[in-house]
Design a protein around this nucleic acid. Structure first.
Length: 296
DNA sequence: CCTTGAACCTGGGCGC
DNA sequence: TGCGCCCAGGTTCAAG
């Protein structure tokens, strides 16, 4: 499920339940997800207090009071849910349908705070997600983070900076933007949506957005603005919910109702006056949705 | 260096 | 109902 807006939504959902709480026990219900859990993972976490939750790219970061940070990546199908005792319900309760795939509850954080117990459950049917724990001061040099590009939120991402990365590249915009070294946190949905907003073809060579002297062309400035806007809009909507619930309380994000091109093959292009039709092609083994009429 | 394709997994949807 | 095939929000690694 998760690109940057979905992970940010998870972070915001978990923060009130986790920050300040003590992790009494970390329950690992199998030895691995995509990778084996690190040695001493459960022991390093047990008895620690959660200082804060943050995010870098698509990684959720759980800062502990011993100077270590738990890193969680949700892969394609990972999700967290909160189970508070006060909200404990009968299995099958209408408002809290018991997930039929409890078999995929792989990691459980058992928490306590002010005498109240709760659990944070990580579920991941496909197990493309993974968790690790690192010393916080060494995190920036960790292989997961070392090569990441700027965040598309805030001011970290700029057109001149992206121009440097794009200069001379024949790589199509679609795959360049999916590359986490270019910009951190974009995935298939938001790359398609940003390119549509900027009226740029996903097939276009990224180097064509840069002048001979290495300056961003007008189109690149527009692309950067489009990326920022689509990410901000998606976060405001609580992310996109496709096959899974993404919010920690079981509710759905609703940005999927705002898709202009993603998963919209055959639909009329929503660009005013365009009249084109949304098409689907495959690039680097992944679906790209775009309007060939207005995206050049 | 670059690009493509396969691999890692499970489940949902669709056509027959 | 059932089976087989295709597809899916990500990332990595091998091969050409």
């Amino acid at each position: 499920m998760p690109e940057l807006p979905e992970v940010e939504t998870v972070r915001r959902g978990l923060a009130p339940a986790m920050e300040g709480a003590e992790i009494v026990r970390l329950e690992l219900r199998r030895g691995d997800l995509r990778f084996p859990f690190p040695l001493e993972f459960a022991a390093s976490v047990a008895g620690r207090r959660v200082v804060s939750l943050s995010r870098r790219a698509k990684y959720l970061l759980i800062d502990l009071d011993n100077g270590m940070t738990v890193i969680a990546h949700l892969g394609m199908s990972g999700s967290f849910r909160i189970e508070a005792d006060i909200a404990a319900v009968t299995p099958g309760d209408f408002h809290h349908p018991r997930s039929k795939n409890e078999a995929h509850d792989h990691v459980i954080f058992h928490l306590t705070r002010n005498g109240e117990q709760s659990r944070i459950v990580y579920n991941d049917p496909r197990r493309f997600g993974f968790m690790d724990i690192v010393v916080r001061s060494e995190m920036a040099s960790h292989p997961f983070f070392r090569d990441l590009g700027p965040e598309p939120t805030g001011n970290a991402l700029s057109a001149p900076d992206l121009a440097k990365r794009f200069a001379g590249k024949a790589q199509p915009l679609k795959s360049a933007l999916l590359d986490q070294k270019m910009i951190a946190g974009l995935g298939n949905i938001y790359v398609c949506e940003a390119l549509w907003r900027a009226h740029l073809s996903p097939l276009r060579a990224s180097g064509t957005l840069v002048t001979k002297t290495g300056k961003p062309r007008e189109k690149l400035v527009l692309l950067v603005a489009s990326i920022r806007e689509v990410i901000a809009d998606a976060i405001a909507a609580g992310g996109s919910s496709l096959r899974d619930h993404i919010q920690t309380d079981g509710s759905l994000g609703y940005f999927q109702h705002s898709f202009s091109v993603y998963d919209q093959e055959g639909a009329a292009c929503r660009t005013p006056g365009c009249g084109g039709t949304v098409g689907r092609i495959v690039q680097a083994g992944r679906s790209t949705f775009y309007c060939a009429t207005c995206q050049k």
